[in-house]
Design a protein around this nucleic acid. Structure first.
Lengths: 292, 292
DNA sequence: GAAATAGTGTCTTTTAGACATTATCCG
DNA sequence: CGGATAATGTCTAAAAGACACTATTTC
């Protein structure tokens, strides 16, 4: 056992400083809804490696000064321009997973702790210190997002590019040209896992409301599900189901000011309820597996 | 922005070595079934800090040499005596989450990547290099395991001790006396999250079979669910439901050699099917939330 | 008034769960 | 044979989903 690493490993078991260093970063998959479509926050790298490539916002954890959660919140705030007071409090932030293949960064061994954020429509992004640009990019232009049967089965620590390259079958509106290249590092994999997690999480938690403002209509809530799942849902059934789940939403008693631009009654307004888990859950339609 | 950290932070964005070092460890919550009860693998620490305390098996990631998955598998192998050939291939290992509060280790800032392992009944544990002892400890003796309504709501990066101290209400058989002290570091929190994850994961994945041998009976599979959930299940309904989920189990055509010691027919044998997700899922009974 | 949308009603199929029943095996 | 357990059958309630329908608003 003490062959390969020898005395060093034995000592290091007691003194962590005896080890070769490993850098720790946080990277954030920040999702929001803009114009009815799912967008992810990306930055263009301002320095090597992968200079000029798109990447997830993130940075190094300040040793001894902050927890991982705090580091993720800090990085997100730097890139979105939100401060703790305005807006950031309404953002949902949760840990996604960690990535630590020794060759994922050419400089040295870097372990990245990935986070997933759900945010309501935010102002235009601004570039942080180490980025040349920051932008909300439509997910449809990046990932093959018509792939909803991929539920949990993910490659573990392998680099699986998530971007479409010579996009011969651009599905959505290729609104932002020039973003067909793969993401830096293994960020394509991380983004794919974040999207999977988001799709799964809104099934059994009320976190879809984190994409909306304080008050919202059932139709707006449905549009969140439709954007994240990439599916249209039956309006009537969705409506009844949401109201039947205890604690999902609670009525404000008010309605929206005007009906739809093309007519229709004024929709009632709701706010998020106090449930942390949806019971029963809002399951995705027809994720047919193998048999049946 | 560049106030607090100043020039250092700016440089470090390009050169990670300019940062204070952070050590990276992996810790494993390894669960198995012994004598019908859920057990977790613990080691007694052979050196400071927390010398003499129980802790999760784990150790430092070898920089530049291994991925996080590989490090977790290595640490688990060292502590269980399993090699890749014998047994370890049948162990399910997945990432649980990362813990990085700067004060969680008194020596320095240590980020720990936690893993969760499901294993069939394994041989007695043996202590690794840096541990004084390794042992399979019944979970009932450690955690307040009659708390199954805690589903996802976990404190994020806070230290929430999981052990019962002056256990006035020891539920299960307090088989291993002397393990009432809290675990080292924040390992109590990690263990609690691992148990929660395990309880949730066997609902919608076939991973309960990872606790059993190659072939098993439906009753054995039910005993896994009962041990992990801490609930008795209706035998008849469970049986029919398991067989109704496509790809969960497949029949071997054979039966067990003898019936139960007190009579009864010979149970049929099954092996794990090819499904990676259970559809429909095996939901836990009555996880009543707030309302309803 | 025409069109569009919010919200509700109704029916069918599927699933969960309680409970009963049959079949098989041990002592 | 008696008791225990494996496996299946039956019934009820809940939930998912398809579809129809009413009500309200804008143009």
């Amino acid at each position: 056992m003490a062959d390969r690493q020898g005395e060093d490993a034995f000592l290091a078991a007691y003194d962590p400083r005896a080890f070769e260093p490993i850098a720790v970063t946080v990277d954030v998959v920040a999702l929001t809804l803009r114009q009815g479509g799912l967008h992810v926050l990306l930055v263009r790298r301002g320095g090597p490696p992968y200079e000029g490539a798109w990447a997830l916002p993130g940075g190094f954890v300040h040793a001894g000064h902050e927890s991982l959660d705090e580091a993720a919140a800090r990085e997100l705030a730097e890139e979105t321009g939100l401060d703790a007071a305005r807006g950031l409090g309404r953002v949902h932030l949760e840990q996604l997973g960690s990535y630590g293949r020794p060759d994922r960064d050419p400089r040295m061994h870097v372990v990245s702790v990935a986070y997933l954020a759900f945010a309501p429509d935010l102002p235009e992004a601004r570039a942080g210190s180490d980025a040349a640009a920051a932008e909300w990019v439509p997910v449809g232009a990046l990932a093959p997002q018509g792939n909803p049967d991929a539920v949990t089965a993910r490659p573990k620590e392998q680099d699986r590019p998530a971007g479409i390259h010579g996009g011969g079958s651009g599905r959505r509106s290729g609104q932002t040209p020039g973003i067909s290249a793969d993401l830096a590092f293994d960020h394509g994999t991380i983004l794919a896992e974040g999207l999977d997690r988001a799709r799964a999480k809104i099934e059994y938690t009320p976190l879809a409301t984190a994409f909306l403002g304080e008050e919202f209509t059932i139709t707006e809530l449905r549009s969140v599900y439709e954007a994240v799942w990439g599916r249209t849902l039956h309006a009537g059934n969705f409506h009844r189901k949401v109201l039947s789940v205890p604690g999902f939403v609670e009525s404000t008693g008010t309605t929206v000011g005007r009906g739809g631009s093309k007519g229709g009654p004024r929709a009632r307004l709701y706010r998020a309820g106090d449930a942390r888990l949806l019971h029963p859950a809002l399951l995705r339609p027809d994720r047919e597996d193998s048999v049946r």
